[in-house]
Simulated assay, not measured.
Amino acid sequence: MADDSISSKALHASIREMGQDFGRGDPEKKDLVVLGTNITKLRPVENDDGSLHPSRLLLTEEKAYDSLAFAFSEPKKWLILTTIFIVQISMNFNAAIYASAVPGMQEHFGIGPFKARLGQFIFLVMYAFGCELWAPWSEELGRWKVLQASLGLVNLWQIPCALAQYVGTGYWMIFGFRALGGLSSAGGSVTLGMVADMWEPADQQYAVAFVVFSSVAGSVVAPICGGFITEYLDWTWVFWISLIFGGVAQALHFAVPETRTSV
């Protein structure tokens, strides 16, 4: 074997000597064969035209496994996931709580129930596009930056919705900013990406279930809170409370470390 080559068995042994748990929980990675790679050197990144980048080097998982989010301790992983649980609830809370404002908007703007519910309709439609919009950016820029930007924009769009009763444009102002709110929601496309960052495929089942449960929980918590808002507060508090909840979720997420290893 050439000096710059190394067998799969030798590579695994070298990684274990460095204290790395290579391929833990992922049977496919234990059978990974890497030939012609010197683990003491990093390979230059290849450009789209086949040329080598002059300054960027490629660091692969097998050469730095203990630096990846996979190597986070279990308590740290679940602390991060608990914060994501709250973030995910806030997103789905924002989507579901709108229905509690419909009676108040009907009375205030003098509109029918169909028109009043268009704000919820457009939010959910744009939410579907928002998830697809934000996911690729999280691969390039990182999960933390994308979720912070998403939460910040969603929180910002709550303010004009809450102030719409004082503006002459009326209900269509709410409709427009609800559309922007849906488009700004990163949703589960990024939060599930964080699960993939921290757990190997064979170990992801409990983390995925936990994140999915947060989506369901947000849709359940919103109607409960909405009942109290409808009974005791003005309809605009639907948006103010969504803003408060979103602000708390964003503040908690601020302390979450980046999990995307390519950033």
Rank of each mutant, 00 (worst) to 15 (best):
238 V>W: 07
16 R>M: 13
247 G>R: 03
223 P>Q: 09
195 V>Q: 01
13 A>I: 10
166 Y>H: 08
252 L>M: 10
81 L>R: 00
104 G>Y: 08
260 R>E: 13
127 Y>D: 05
12 H>S: 13
226 G>M: 07
107 E>P: 10
141 L>W: 04
181 G>R: 00
191 T>A: 05
209 A>P: 01
251 A>E: 09
135 A>K: 09
243 L>D: 05
108 H>N: 12
32 L>V: 08
223 P>W: 07
5 S>D: 10
70 F>W: 01
131 C>W: 03
127 Y>R: 02
50 G>P: 06
228 F>C: 11
192 L>V: 07
92 N>Y: 15
27 P>S: 04
110 G>F: 09
215 S>V: 12
37 T>R: 15
58 L>G: 00
65 Y>K: 07
72 F>Y: 06
30 K>E: 15
10 A>F: 05
128 A>P: 03
147 L>V: 03
195 V>W: 02
29 K>D: 14
175 F>Y: 04
190 V>M: 05
48 D>N: 10
203 D>N: 06
47 N>T: 08
144 W>G: 09
63 K>Y: 11
108 H>Y: 12
87 V>A: 10
70 F>E: 04
82 T>N: 11
5 S>W: 08
8 S>F: 09
55 S>R: 14
256 V>H: 04
215 S>D: 07
228 F>V: 12
47 N>R: 10
110 G>M: 11
50 G>S: 05
248 V>Q: 06
158 Q>P: 08
132 E>T: 15
47 N>I: 09
182 G>S: 00
241 I>H: 05
4 D>H: 09
230 T>E: 15
157 W>F: 08
24 R>K: 15
45 V>M: 09
92 N>A: 15
135 A>V: 13
91 M>Q: 15
169 T>S: 15
187 G>A: 07
97 I>Q: 05
7 S>T: 10
55 S>I: 12
161 C>F: 04
137 W>Q: 13
137 W>F: 13
128 A>M: 12
26 D>K: 02
117 R>A: 13
112 G>S: 04
19 G>N: 02
27 P>R: 04
120 Q>E: 14
255 A>G: 12
92 N>L: 15
116 A>K: 06
26 D>H: 03
46 E>Q: 10
155 N>Q: 07
241 I>L: 15
166 Y>K: 07
54 P>I: 07
28 E>F: 13
55 S>H: 10
110 G>K: 06
141 L>R: 09
190 V>C: 06
107 E>S: 14
59 L>Q: 11
247 G>V: 06
113 P>Y: 10
225 C>Q: 08
20 Q>D: 14
50 G>F: 05
26 D>P: 01
3 D>R: 08
208 V>A: 00
46 E>Y: 00
124 L>I: 09
143 R>D: 01
112 G>L: 11
160 P>M: 02
147 L>P: 01
189 S>K: 03
93 F>H: 00
213 F>H: 04
144 W>Y: 13
58 L>R: 11
219 S>T: 10
124 L>C: 08
